[in-house]
């Protein structure tokens, strides 16, 4: 049972932390994308969407290099904390944030775009600063976008495999998430354990999506 729950807990923890970080990270990016008329928009859009089309192994390979003790980010991290980013939980969080970024940015950008400028203008004329209007009008009116971003980021991070294998390896309690554990069990022909883990992940993923669509329907009414 221990071996079953530990990878699951790790997966949920990774997906949860990644989702929370992504909401903060994706908000300004999505806001900028929805508002800007800059020529840089297609460039930023492409960069953000890259993880959707890139094979996870390619992403993982580049991340391994950047996050590794010799890489730009990795060496700085080693200097700062004394430990390496690769093959650590923190490294996984960073990799997941990049890997799942488009799944947080897209729903938010759509929500912000459909919000338009009209209500914000009204808020400004009523004495609200730009920041105030964002938090008191734009944010609450984009709740559904946030819900979508949360569920998609969470589910996508939960199902991550290639990137984690490349960056995190297979360290129990540290980087051995469910998807890796399943692979591991199958490799050692332990189909019963693989079945249990797979079923667990299936249930978690389904419940997450089902909740989103249910809540979404409630809101529409």
């Amino acid at each position: 049972m221990e071996s079953l729950l530990q990878p699951l807990w790790l997966s949920v923890k990774l997906a949860g932390i990644t989702t929370l970080l992504l909401l903060v990270l994706a908000t300004p990016i999505a806001w900028w994308l929805a508002q800007t008329r800059s020529g840089l928009k297609p460039l930023v859009q492409s960069l953000v969407a890259l993880p959707i089309v890139l094979p996870p192994t390619v992403m993982g390979f580049y991340l391994l290099i950047v996050l590794g003790p010799a890489g730009a980010l990795g060496s700085w991290w080693v200097e700062l904390t004394g430990s390496a980013l690769t093959f650590s939980f923190t490294g996984l969080v960073i990799a997941s944030c990049i890997y799942s970024l488009p799944f947080a940015v897209q729903p938010l950008a759509v929500a912000f775009e459909s919000l338009g400028k009209q209500k914000l203008e009204a808020a400004w004329t009523l004495g609200a600063s730009k920041a105030d209007a964002f938090f008191s009008v734009a944010l609450p009116l984009s709740v559904r976008g946030y819900l979508g971003a949360m569920v998609l980021s969470f589910a996508h991070t939960l199902g991550e495999f290639g990137v984690i294998l490349m960056v995190g390896g297979n360290i129990p309690g540290e980087t051995r998430v469910v998807s890796i554990a399943i692979y591991d069990q199958v490799e050692s022909l332990n189909y019963a354990a693989a079945h249990r883990l797979s079923a667990l992940l299936l249930v978690v993923a389904f419940v997450a999506l089902f909740t989103m669509f249910l809540v979404n329907r409630r809101w529409r009414r």
Binding site: Q118, K119, E121, A122, W124, T125, A128, D132, P140
Partner: peptide
Amino acid sequence: VQRRDIGYVFQEPRLFDHLAVRANIDY
């Protein structure tokens, strides 16, 4: 904009959908 003491009535009401009428007026 926010430091000009104006009241602007647009062509459309532009009410804040997440707030009740009272909270809209209080905004």
